[in-house]
Simulated assay, not measured.
Amino acid sequence: MEIAGVISAIVIGLIIGVLGRLVVPGRQHIGVIWTILIGIVAALVGAAIAHKLGVADTKGIDWIEWLIQIGLAAVGIAALDRSRARR
């Protein structure tokens, strides 16, 4: 993977992670690095799911793909936050 690909994955992960945090109600007790990592994983898994569903390559903005990715990020952030709250 080229440096541009790594930088774009981090930026997209950050955006998806922040949007996922906005969806989850309340204050989350996880850091920025975890938000980015969850966002990157959610972006990759969400893109794969959207591709399997056939909604990944549309004309214009892929809103369904974005919604899948943000939903996965929200679930990941809520799960990590709850697992850390139990400690």
Rank of each mutant, 00 (worst) to 15 (best):
A74K: 02
G13W: 04
I16V: 14
G46A: 00
I70G: 02
V6T: 08
G54K: 04
R87L: 13
I16K: 03
V18F: 14
A4N: 08
G31N: 04
I36W: 01
D57S: 14
I7A: 13
G71H: 05
A78P: 06
E65A: 13
M1C: 00
R21L: 05
I12S: 06
V6H: 10
S83Y: 13
G17M: 01
I3R: 13
G13S: 01
A9C: 06
L22N: 10
V11R: 03
R21T: 10
A9I: 08
P25C: 12
A85S: 15
G39P: 06
L67V: 01
A74M: 02
M1D: 00
A9S: 11
S83E: 12
H29Q: 06
D81G: 08
K59W: 13
R27Y: 04
V6S: 15
V23T: 07
D62R: 12
L72D: 05
T35L: 05
V75R: 12
G31D: 04
V11G: 02
W34D: 13
V11N: 08
A79W: 14
S83P: 02
L14H: 07
I10A: 05
I61R: 12
A48P: 04
A73K: 01
V32F: 15
I38H: 11
V23S: 01
L80P: 03
I33V: 11
V75I: 09
I38R: 07
A47H: 14
L72H: 08
L14Y: 08
T35C: 01
L44R: 12
L19N: 07
S8G: 03
A42P: 04
V41P: 05
L53P: 01
I33M: 09
L19F: 15
R86C: 09
D81P: 00
I3S: 10
G13D: 08
H29M: 08
E65T: 15
G26S: 06
I30Q: 06
V18D: 09
V6F: 15
I49C: 00
G26V: 00
Q69S: 09
K52E: 14
V41I: 14
I16R: 10
I49R: 06
D57M: 11
G71K: 09
A43Y: 10
G26P: 00
G76T: 12
V55L: 12
G46N: 08
V41K: 03
Q69D: 11
S8L: 07
L67T: 03
V23L: 15
G31I: 08
V45A: 07
I33K: 14
W63P: 07
I77C: 01
Q69M: 15
D62K: 11
I33W: 11
V32R: 05
G60H: 07
H51V: 08
E65Y: 09
A85G: 10
I64G: 06
A78I: 09
A74Q: 03
A79P: 05
W66K: 10
A50D: 02
L67A: 07
G5Y: 06
A73R: 02
L72Q: 08
I15L: 12
E2A: 09
A47C: 12
V11F: 02
H29F: 06
I10Y: 05
A43S: 09
R84F: 11
V23F: 14
A85K: 15
L37I: 06
G54M: 03
D81R: 07
G76W: 15
L19Y: 13
